[in-house]
Structure formats: structure tokens, C-alpha cells
């Protein structure tokens, strides 16, 4: 077990001992287990999955949508420093779906490079939210 702190601009969202964390980084997903070597890395837009106890099944994982930040692991302390993190429970699936469609529409209508880039960022964000919302639903079945 190691300690996880999910630090955001609106406070600490998660602060407890866990057994495994899967994080989205620039190089793809990485899993962190107890006694991982000291690490500093960059989190990208994606889903953070947290396994609290070693033998928890998939459906008991906690999921958060994050949109970029920094990851620091040292002496069995994992700090995930992100601007925002949305817990699966806090996302309304229907709303997320609508927002995603809206972002895609904006991307399709984008005229210049700047607005395209902005729309793409929005699409990425909202697809992650949707993904997290879907994860929650799958587990409820």
C-alpha cells in the first residue's frame, strides 16, 4: 500500500492509502504500485483509476477525469497535481454526451488553426468526461 493525494485547485479530492493507481501520461498509461522508484512525470488528459485494496475487482475502482498536470512519486507517496479532477459520481452521463457532441460540432465548424486547436482540446476534455461517466454506468450493472 502507498499513499495517494489527488491535489486540485479546488482542494484535495482524494487522500488515502491505495494499492494501485493507473495514470495517463505523455508516454501512455502507467500503473504505479507500492515501492515504485521515485518518479516525476507529466499527466495528460485522461482517466485516473484507483484500486484501493489489492484484490478489488474492476468494478470497485475509483475513476477521475483529469486534464493534465504533474505526477510525483517518492517514498511511497504519490502526488497527482492537476488543475481539475472530476469524480465519476459527479458527472452526469447524458450531459457529458451532449457536451461531447457540442465540442465535436465546434471542431467541425472551426475555421482557423487557433479555433481548431481550441475545439480539439475541448473534444479531448469532454471525451474523457464521457469515458469516466461510461465507466461508472458499466459498473452499476
Amino acid at each position: 500500500m502507498f499513499h495517494l493525494q489527488l491535489v486540485t485547485l479546488t482542494g484535495i479530492k482524494y487522500d488515502q492509502d491505495v494499492s494501485e493507481v493507473i495514470l495517463p501520461t505523455l508516454d501512455g498509461q502507467i500503473g504505479i504500485l507500492t515501492d515504485h522508484m521515485p518518479l516525476i512525470s507529466v499527466a495528460t488528459v485522461g482517466v485516473i483509476s484507483i484500486r484501493r485494496n489489492p484484490h478489488d475487482p474492476e468494478r470497485e475502482l475509483d475513476h477521475f477525469a483529469v486534464y493534465g498536470g504533474v505526477i510525483e512519486f517518492d517514498k511511497n507517496n504519490l502526488k497527482v497535481i492537476v488543475d481539475e479532477a472530476d469524480a465519476a459520481d459527479s458527472i452526469n452521463e447524458a450531459e457529458a454526451e451532449r457536451a461531447f457532441a457540442e465540442a465535436q460540432r465546434m471542431k467541425a465548424e472551426a475555421k482557423d488553426a487557433v479555433s481548431l486547436e481550441r475545439a480539439q482540446a475541448l473534444v479531448d476534455r469532454r471525451s474523457v468526461r464521457l469515458q469516466v461517466a461510461n465507466l461508472k454506468r458499466r459498473h452499476q450493472r
Binding site: 522508484m37 518518479l39 517518492d74
Partner: peptide, 21 residues
Amino acid sequence: HDFTNFEPDTDTVLFHSTLRL
């Protein structure tokens, strides 16, 4: 902290994080 591993590498991590910090 001299043994800390930067992933993917030091430059990339610093590039993405310094301004934010």
C-alpha cells in the same frame, strides 16, 4: 532526490510543468 526518474525524460517534464508550477 537525486535518483528520481523523469518520464519520458527530464526536458519534456520540465517543459510541460515549469510554467504551470
